[in-house]
Structures are given as structure tokens and as C-alpha cells.
Amino acid sequence: MLYKKLKSAREESGLTQSEVAKKLYVTRQTVSRWEQGKTLPNIYVIQKLSNLYCLSLDELVENTVFEKEEVKNMKKINFFALFGALVFNIFLFSLVILFLSGILILSYGISLIMIFSPLIFVVFVLTGIQDFNVFQLILTIFFIGIGLFSIPLLKKSLLRHLILLKAI
């Protein structure tokens, strides 16, 4: 079995799992899984392992038989982990969509308030809540410009947002 050969070759070379992992740019746990028969290294890694252990590829994989249990262990799927990953991704994606929708709605609200700012200013002056001020009048006219400029941009982003939602 390959995992036994990998472990014995490493031990004969006098290397630890950590040293092998550093040389192959993998984690020590990965090397451990190879040596326990839980996973198999890919063909490129097997080639690097044969060079590292000073063995030919034939010597390393010679008479290697994959028992049914070995293959069966590799095909097991952790359904709880799969379910957890799906729930997490759906939750995260939903939060992103809600956040973007909230920002879009808030932006529309601010633009509408800017457009109606002169009307609000006039109502406040006529009811006596606020005194007339030329600077504030100019500022409200400036706000109209910003509001009118931002509405077409927000419509484009709303259309992109809706297209994104339809794609899902």
C-alpha cells in the first residue's frame, strides 16, 4: 500500500513530516494524511517525493494496491460540512444583497430629499420656523443639482442590482 511506503521511505530518509511538508510546500497534516492512507498525493507530488526520498517512481509505487477500504475512505463525503458550507454561503450572500439594497434605497432617499430641499426651505421660512437666508437658498439650489445628477446614476446601479439578482 502506498501510504505505508511513503511513511517507511520518509523514516528511512531520516526526515520528519514537518521537514517533508516544508520541502513540498504543503502542511504537515497533509503529509500525515498521505501516510495514514486518508488521501493520496497527486502525480506531481509523488514525483517530488520520489526525488526527495532518493527512490525511483517505480520503487515508490511498485506493487501498490489500493484496497477497497482505502478507496472507500477517500470517497466519503462529510454531509454536515457540506450543509454548513452551503448555509454559510447563502447567509453571507443574503447579507451582501441586503446591505447593497439598503445602501441603494438610502441613496434614493437622500437624492429625493436633496431635490425637494428648496420646497422644504420655503415651507420652513413661510411658517416662521426659520429665517430667510440667501446662503441657505443657494445651498438648496446646489442640492437640487446634486439630487438631479445622482438619480440617473442610481437608476443605472439599480438596474445592475436587479440584473445581478435575476442571474442568481
Rank of each mutant, 00 (worst) to 15 (best):
N51K: 15
N89A: 15
K38Y: 11
D58G: 08
Y44Q: 09
F79D: 12
L6Y: 14
I113S: 02
G84W: 03
L153W: 03
L57E: 15
F132W: 10
S50G: 07
L153M: 05
F116W: 01
I141A: 12
L164Q: 14
L6T: 11
Q36W: 13
F99W: 11
L60Y: 07
I144D: 01
F93D: 10
F142L: 07
F83H: 08
I168C: 14
I163K: 11
W34V: 12
K156C: 02
L49Q: 02
P152D: 01
V134N: 14
V45P: 02
H161D: 11
S94M: 03
F99R: 00
G109I: 00
S50A: 10
S50V: 15
T140I: 11
V122S: 05
I146L: 04
F121C: 05
K166V: 12
L119K: 12
S157C: 03
T64W: 10
L60A: 04
S111H: 06
I120N: 06
G14D: 04
I168H: 12
S94W: 00
V31M: 00
D131H: 05
L15S: 06
S157W: 03
F79T: 12
K76P: 03
T30F: 03
L86E: 13
L112R: 08
E62L: 13
S94Y: 04
L52G: 01
A167N: 12
Q47V: 12
F124Q: 01
S8E: 15
L40W: 07
G145P: 02
S13I: 00
I105Q: 00
F83A: 15
E12C: 11
L104G: 00
E69K: 02
R33L: 10
I151H: 01
R160W: 03
L158D: 13
L2R: 08
L139Q: 11
N63S: 13
I144W: 02
I97L: 04
Q17M: 10
L164N: 13
V45L: 00
V125Y: 00
L164H: 09
I43W: 13
T30H: 07
L162C: 09
K22A: 08
G128L: 01
N63M: 15
S56H: 06
F93M: 14
V65C: 10
V26C: 06
S8H: 15
L162M: 05
E59V: 01
K23A: 05
L24C: 05
L95R: 10
L92Q: 07
I46Q: 01
P152K: 04
L24I: 07
V134C: 13
L104S: 01
I151A: 02
E70P: 04
Y53D: 12
L162I: 07
K75W: 01
E67H: 04
I129S: 10
Y44R: 06
I77Q: 14
N51E: 12
L119H: 09
S157Q: 05
G37Q: 11
K156W: 09
L49R: 06
F132E: 02
T140K: 13
I46N: 07
I141Y: 13
F132V: 02
V71Q: 08
L162H: 05
L55G: 13
K48D: 14
L159H: 08
L153D: 03
Q47C: 09
R10L: 04
S150M: 02
L40V: 14
V31N: 00
L92T: 03
I97E: 06
S13P: 07
V96I: 09
T39I: 09
V123T: 04
